[in-house]
């Protein structure tokens, strides 16, 4: 009896069930999933939700957001990279998508995914990070900070969202451009990194503008410079690194990807839908509330943007190298 149940069950699971999933019809005829490789409440999640809601209205087809978290995003990204290229599983990724394969290479491990496994659909938003120091710190400008850092190499500390994380990369680009050495204290996410500087345990932080602006207004933090090509709209008095003569440019961007191999008509359809999505008033309204600027780029332009960004990031990862070998 038992054996019979087991045998039928096993046969079904491993032989028959995969066949059911083959059916192919007009796209889309079932819910589309946008996988977010980060926990709810993060930038990627908060961007993906209004995108999904607006896409649903445009497509008249359910679009679901699923958080596939783990390993600093590697779990969710490799999930989409390895899922069936049929346009039903999409990815909302952040800049870190270019970092993880490079970090894997650095440690000689089997990469969780490679960038070739994904094709870009569209860039949704790009937010330049800003450099903040504590409100009671002596540095009033980047120049003062750099001068002090040159005097006391490796003494001024900064927190980050994690080793090889986006905030770490931004700081690495700045300190490389300025020729200084700072002390890195990694934390487990952007939230703890912000808490650390507010508590006075580190001196500086690179952060997305939206979360630090209230603390800047309360004089707890002081902005020194931004990483963008243009100044941040809500912080017009803060200069960019480019203006100050440091070659550092960095954005926390959110873009959508599909697995490589997705049929061309499906990709075209998705790109059309996203183009309409970003013009929806509800979507614009949601992004304004989040203080995240929409920076829509269609696939060809996004590909160029991504190539350039990925090059900068991989160079930064290579410069940092393995931490413990530089001692």
């Amino acid at each position: 009896m038992n054996r019979l149940i087991i045998v039928t069950f096993s046969l079904y699971v491993f032989l028959v069930a995969p066949l059911h999933a083959r059916a192919q019809e007009a796209f889309p005829n079932r819910p589309i999933t946008i996988a977010v490789p980060f926990p709810p409440g993060g930038v990627a999640d908060l961007t993906a939700r209004p995108v999904a809601a607006a896409m649903e209205r445009v497509l008249k087809n359910p679009v679901i957001v699923v958080n596939k978290t783990g390993a600093a995003g590697a779990v969710g990204m490799s999930y989409v990279a390895n899922s069936k290229p049929d346009g039903y599983t999409l990815l909302m990724a952040l800049s870190s998508i270019s970092i993880i394969p490079e970090a894997d290479k650095l440690f000689d491990r089997q990469p969780a995914y490679t960038m070739d496994q994904l094709v870009p659909l569209a860039l949704i938003s790009a937010d330049p990070t800003v450099l903040v120091v504590r409100g009671d710190s002596p540095w009033k400008s980047v120049k003062e900070l750099v001068a002090d850092a040159k005097k006391r190499a490796g003494e001024i500390s900064y927190s980050s969202s994690g080793i090889y994380g986006t905030l770490h990369m931004a700081m690495e680009m700045f300190s490389h451009a300025a020729g200084i050495k700072l002390k890195h204290v990694p934390y487990g996410g952007a939230g703890p990194a912000l808490t650390a500087i507010l508590g006075g345990h580190v001196d500086a932080l690179a952060s997305g503008p939206a979360v630090v602006i209230p603390h800047i207004k309360a004089n707890k933090l002081r902005p020194l410079a931004g990483w963008g090509a243009k100044r941040v709209a809500s912080l017009p008095e803060v200069a960019t690194f480019k203006e100050l003569g440091y070659d550092a440019e960095f954005y926390i961007w959110a873009g959508m990807f599909a697995p490589r191999g997705t049929p061309e008509p499906v990709l075209k359809k998705l790109r059309d839908v996203i183009r309409q999505t970003v013009q929806e008033p509800d979507f614009k309204d949601a992004m304004t509330k989040l203080e995240t600027p929409i920076a829509y780029l269609d696939a060809p332009d996004f590909q160029k943007f991504w190539d350039k960004d990925a090059k900068m990031l991989t160079d930064a990862v290579k410069r940092i190298g393995r931490i413990e070998e530089k001692k």
Binding site: G41, D45, G191, P214, K217, A218
Partner: peptide, 18 residues
């Protein structure tokens, strides 16, 4: 952190002056 995100979605920037 998730609850603060919920506030941000509504255009409230949580900070020391909340």
């Amino acid at each position: 952190a998730v609850m603060l995100a919920a506030l941000m979605v509504h255009g409230i920037s949580p900070g020391p002056l909340l």
